[in-house]
Design a protein around this nucleic acid. Structure first.
Lengths: 153, 153
DNA sequence: CACAATCTAATCGCGCACAATCTAAATCCA
DNA sequence: TGGATTTAGATTGTGCGCGATTAGATTGTG
């Protein structure tokens, strides 16, 4: 009555493929981020702010699928490093607005070349990368949707 | 002289797609793993041992791309929970052999249905999942290869 | 207006990841 | 054989992720 025995084989687990490739990416970025004094999650937060500055913690979290428990200490470290400023919103004192400093903005120029440099070892064309990225994002969306459904209690 | 402005856009980052989908998977597995008292990394270690029992810490690490700094405390928790035993190898006292207990083996039956249940929200056929998994593993291989090359110093 | 419900961050605790370092065992090889 | 090198695992410190809780501000409703 056991299902296909390979059902639990590690090499058939899509989740493990993502889990391990995600760490591999983080390691691949490290040589480029270390000189900038950034961790990968910190870099991702800056990606968000470089696209749109002056966001609340909640807005950053929505974009990155992270909550304040993760973001608050991370943002404090980015602030201590001089990349951002955090200020309570005057209109709504619940919210904390995150703004890039001049240092944080200029950091963007140093980061500009990183995706290409890491990407060139992937052996994928620009279009392939984009198609792949969208496929993966689609899966992520389905996982989130199902989580939302099961949390509808 | 700025490159394509969308080069750093979050939605074009393959790395972020993997980063975020990996966490989404971990969250999707949680409702199934919590009742078993397992975290996702612990579950993955058991996947390895269910495929082949009596491995050293190194062998598990090679399979999962993790080192002893991560595995040692994780394995101690699995041992404390009664799923495995850890014993020094008599032939080579440097090595620690990891063996499933009866509890650990029977846990496999409870885990058997998890991948299918999570997988059914993905909207992918078995073949699609497999193809996707292999594509992702191929990328992981290229990242590891390039890391190995740059570490050839 | 009062006051409950909702919302935003912050905080705390735990469990990874991982670099760096350490110890001890095994292997190499002059 | 014996010292140098290599290897396996453990340890330490830092930084995430995230569930759970808390504090404080805002909104909704009678």
């Amino acid at each position: 009555m056991t299902k296909k025995p390979e059902m639990l084989a590690l090499d058939n687990q899509l989740c493990f493929a993502f889990y391990s490739v995600s760490h591999a990416f983080s390691r691949a970025y490290r040589p480029f981020l270390d000189p900038l004094g950034l961790t990968y999650p910190q870099y991702v937060v800056l990606l968000v702010l470089w696209e749109q500055d002056d966001l609340t913690v909640k807005e950053i979290g929505d974009r990155l699928f992270l909550d304040s428990g993760t973001l608050t200490p991370l943002l404090k470290r980015l602030e201590a490093a001089g990349h951002i400023r955090r200020t309570r919103d005057r209109k709504d004192e619940r919210q904390v607005r995150v703004l890039l400093t001049e240092t944080g903005r200029t950091m963007r120029d140093k980061a500009e070349e990183i995706p290409r440099q890491v990407g060139c070892v992937l052996g994928l064309s620009f279009d392939e990368v984009r198609a792949f990225t969208q496929e993966v994002a689609k899966l992520r969306g389905r996982l989130h949707d199902s989580a939302a459904v099961s949390a509808k209690s």
